[in-house]
Design a protein around this nucleic acid. Sequence first.
DNA 1: ATGACGGTGCTCCACCGA
Length: 262
Amino acid sequence: MRIATWNVNSIRQRLDHAVRWLGETRPDIVCIQEIKCQTEAFPKEAFEQLGYNVTVHGQKGFNGVALLSRLPLEDVTHGLAGDDGDVQARFIEAVVSVKGGVVRVACLYLPNGNPVDTEKYPYKLGFMERLEAFAADRLKLEEPLILAGDFNVIPEARDAADPSAWVGDALFLPRTRSAFRSLTHLGLTDALRATSDAGRLYTFWDYQAGAWQRDMGIRIDHLLLSPQAADKLIATGIDKHVRAWEKPSDHVPIWADLAIAA
DNA sequence: ATGACGGTGCTCCACCGA
């Protein structure tokens, strides 16, 4: 089973890319972030024609997430528990039944948090606290669980081409990275780092200042695995070639292959 | 030091993102 995550930066602008990429890699489960449309405006049929079951949690203009799966999606929940006042569409949880059990997936779009001297940063930290509470609860189930998405966190200095450029940024502040470590220390495995010590592994390159051409990237899209999922981890990859396509998203897909029969 | 790029919508500017 291959599970992938991709921040598409508008699904309507990126539909051709999404269809092309799905045709290339045929992942079993796909977490999509920043669809930037309302649920009804999501081009669901295009993905259903490719054999996917689709659930969409959209909102007007910004944010928005979607989850695609070749196997039926069960127990779908839209929104992250812990703040009834949070109206931003950033989270979907679902379960997929596989031979001998289930796979539980959370598709998430963690808040950016900039500028840090505004209410945006406390919102980010609050979301991370709620995510940690969610993960702690679900880990009790002892299931294969994957938290996949755009975390908007640069975990370590080696995850940025130029770490000095990110000092003071909400993606890299010590408090942000501490919150991310607190999450992983529950017992979640960063799938990419579990399979590679290579340098220059990035998932985002800014549109501006020739960041892609100069490979000035950052690694902020992650797949975090419960022990039961990590035990099945075979390989990971970053599909960075899609960043060179015409009119690309500023993020690229990343994926993990798990030894679980789909 | 700033803006750069690209997306959305109550669109020809403002706001958001990273």
